[in-house]
Simulated assay, not measured.
Amino acid sequence: MLTPIEINNNFEWVDVQDETAAEHRRLIQSYKLTEEMYGYATDPSERARIEFDKEAGISLMIFNVITDLPDDSPEAATAPIGFLFKGKRVYTFTSGTTNYVHNLVINSNSALKLPPIEQQQPIDAILGLMYKLTTTYLDKINRIDRRRAEIQRSLKTNPEHSAINELMDLETSLVYYLTALKTNTDMLKDLQRTPVVPVNADQKEHITDILVESQQGLEMAQMASDVVERVSNAYSNLIDNSLNNTMKFLTAYSIIMTVPTIVSGFFGENVALPFEHNPYGWQITILIMIALGTVVYLILRHYRFFDR
């Protein structure tokens, strides 16, 4: 879908979502975008960065955002979107799980002190959007940290094997956030040094504000990832220790239960054995089993085989 929206006299915003082949041709032929820049803006594997095409008069920014997916989704938690500047137009390229960005542009206000809408330049709108997208990382990371704390508390009272899967999901999401925030931070540093379009002092300050938020998110994600990893390792050790204790317990009692089998095996042979003709032979055999089993138990107990 290709939706041109006139924001003010300074620029027009063109929202590009899941474009068709016909819309692709329209962007190239009518809007005079280049195939190279279009390919960069729509590549789902593109890293966050800035790009220039002086000959075509096109500037491009790739920015990683959180995808609109449930927290437990097996799909990627982040994806790149493209901001493309050409003349008095700014283009945003989103698809699938990143199409929610459209609503942020239209309906939300940024915490940045931007000029009134009628005075905004293309870079103002994009900086405001980038600030909002960056702060969503902080909310997600805080939510993950709260869930990690809940799991950690529950493990102390009621360890469950399902918890390791949930911790793994949290750790996976944090890896995506860490990677996305790191590349976003690098891109913002490049943007400080070489803006994609001319910027004034206020706009430079806004870039710095976004960079600060991105670095804060990066530090939070790193700390949360470290904590989740340590909790996951501790829980894995707890499971291993529990399994070792169980196997130790079963081994000890299998040794004890082997004694009656050996004794009864001897007295089950068709050969002359003690107490064979004794009227109390069966009871004596049982007493021998119990006595030998008790001796084996005391030996194992002496070597602390039953301690956990």
Score class of each variant (00 low, 15 high):
3 T>P: 00
7 I>S: 01
8 N>A: 08
12 E>W: 09
13 W>D: 04
14 V>T: 09
15 D>N: 06
18 D>W: 04
19 E>V: 14
21 A>Y: 09
25 R>L: 14
32 K>M: 10
32 K>R: 15
34 T>N: 06
40 Y>V: 03
42 T>C: 02
46 E>D: 04
46 E>K: 11
50 I>C: 06
52 F>E: 00
52 F>D: 02
54 K>I: 07
56 A>Y: 07
56 A>K: 05
58 I>Q: 00
60 L>P: 07
61 M>K: 05
63 F>P: 05
64 N>K: 12
66 I>M: 04
67 T>C: 05
69 L>R: 15
70 P>A: 08
72 D>G: 03
76 A>N: 10
78 T>Y: 07
79 A>T: 05
83 F>W: 01
90 V>Y: 05
91 Y>M: 07
98 T>D: 02
100 Y>L: 06
100 Y>R: 04
101 V>W: 03
103 N>T: 05
107 N>F: 13
108 S>F: 14
110 S>H: 04
113 K>Q: 01
113 K>V: 11
113 K>I: 03
115 P>R: 13
117 I>L: 03
117 I>Y: 05
119 Q>L: 14
122 P>K: 05
122 P>G: 06
122 P>F: 06
127 L>T: 02
132 K>C: 03
135 T>P: 05
142 N>Y: 06
147 R>Q: 11
161 H>F: 14
161 H>K: 13
163 A>Y: 12
166 E>A: 05
166 E>T: 13
167 L>R: 04
168 M>F: 12
168 M>S: 15
169 D>A: 10
176 Y>H: 02
179 T>C: 12
179 T>Y: 13
180 A>Y: 12
180 A>F: 04
184 N>S: 03
184 N>H: 10
186 D>S: 14
187 M>T: 14
191 L>E: 09
191 L>S: 08
192 Q>T: 06
196 V>E: 02
199 V>M: 14
200 N>E: 12
200 N>C: 11
200 N>D: 11
201 A>K: 15
202 D>V: 09
204 K>W: 02
204 K>M: 15
208 T>L: 12
211 L>H: 13
211 L>A: 10
215 Q>C: 08
219 E>G: 13
220 M>T: 01
222 Q>W: 08
229 E>F: 03
231 V>S: 10
232 S>N: 02
232 S>R: 06
232 S>W: 06
234 A>N: 12
234 A>R: 02
237 N>S: 11
237 N>G: 13
242 S>A: 13
242 S>F: 09
245 N>D: 07
248 K>C: 06
250 L>A: 01
251 T>S: 02
252 A>V: 15
259 V>T: 10
260 P>S: 09
260 P>C: 04
262 I>T: 13
267 F>C: 11
267 F>E: 07
267 F>V: 13
268 G>D: 14
269 E>Q: 13
274 P>N: 08
275 F>L: 05
281 G>D: 11
288 I>E: 10
295 V>G: 10
296 V>L: 09
304 R>Y: 04
305 F>I: 04
306 F>Y: 11
308 R>Q: 14
